[in-house]
Design a protein around this nucleic acid. Structure first.
Lengths: 186, 186
DNA sequence: AGATTAACGGAGGCTATCCTCCGGTTAACA
DNA sequence: TGTTAACCGGAGGATAGCCTCCGTTAATCT
């Protein structure tokens, strides 16, 4: 579980420091979602109720902060895949992809994450594939998903939906169904 | 042809001014593509080989510059739809969507354009729909495209692909085929 | 060709954000 | 409960980008 380690490794031991670490991560997630990954770091510190120096102490560069935000979200995604172990193949795949979109929506940068080269992003990619590939293979073996689609392709298709904006949730769902129908065996 | 007018209306009459207008638009398109729509305006001016004041004279706000860049691209897209009038329905639709992705790739902000409220963006939206809706309807009547997909949905699906990044052109094409298969009548 | 007038470009003031330094605070452990 | 070392936060210099003002240049028209 590489991504979990990455987080644990950085989290400070002292109670107040650990609390601030979490607060900054949560604030950054919110700020990046609303304002993009170039949101002011002082804004992030303010939201976290923390001095700017504390932010810099935990995350010396903006890049590292961004990385950790994504690491923490990928971690949640990986855990979710485990929960789906006993769900029927096709339903499990669809549910996971839907959740993937929900997370991806938060942050444009996750879109690029699949291509980035940093160690943290590489770990994310590996864990994400470790979680998702079995879901797709299971759906292919059960005859629900077409066999000529590989997981990377499917992910890219779905990533797109994260980036797009929709008039309302109904439309988001309809478009998701269009995309899913492209993956389904006919 | 609303978008064409929008452009003609703003373009200066004097030869040097018109040349600079075009250069700025081209430079902005490039800079926004590479650096995002919050690229430095001084960088744009530098690329255009023009003083910063000249840029501001033509486009008083960043917003207006962004708008005009998109207006000019939508204009090209609309023209392309006309060229496809005599192509078989399904092929025409696919070709146009592919071109749409190519343009959308350039600029994240076009993604939001469908939701924006400014007059220029509204004109873009209308012209784009005017160009694309007939293509989809033609493909539906010929029995190639499923009838329960509306044009807005299709566009959103495809917009996603503009935003996503791909390992190579082969993958881009495979994913595009997945998406297209979601639209095809079965 | 010369006058007129629109257009040009860069210097520079302004603001926002970045990032570091350092004196005060508090959690951890005996 | 006292000591210590890690942690805290804000002030402030540095930098980068925004936008305007104004003296200079050159396209257009007769």
């Amino acid at each position: 579980m590489a991504v979990t380690e990455l987080l644990a490794q950085r989290r400070p031991h002292r109670a107040d420091a650990a609390r601030n670490f979490d607060a900054i991560l949560a604030a950054a997630r919110g700020a990046f979602t609303e304002l993009g990954t170039d949101a002011s770091l002082e804004e992030v510190a303010r939201r976290a109720g923390v001095g700017i120096a504390t932010l810099y102490r935990n995350f010396p560069t903006r890049e590292e902060l961004i990385e950790m935000v994504y690491v923490s979200e990928v971690d949640a995604l990986v855990r979710y895949a485990e929960e789906l172990k006993d769900t029927p193949p096709w339903d499990a795949l669809v549910a996971w992809l839907r959740r993937f979109i929900e997370y991806g929506k938060t942050k444009r940068a996750l879109i690029d994450a699949l291509n980035r080269t940093s160690a943290a992003f590489k770990a994310c990619r590996e864990d994400m594939f470790g979680a998702g590939v079995p879901l797709l293979e299971r759906a292919q073996q059960s005859g629900d998903a077409r066999k000529d689609a590989d997981f990377d392709d499917v992910l890219r298709l779905v990533i797109g939906l994260s980036a797009a904006t929709f008039a309302d949730d109904g439309q988001r769902e309809r478009v998701f169904q269009l995309a899913i129908d492209g993956i389904r065996e006919r």
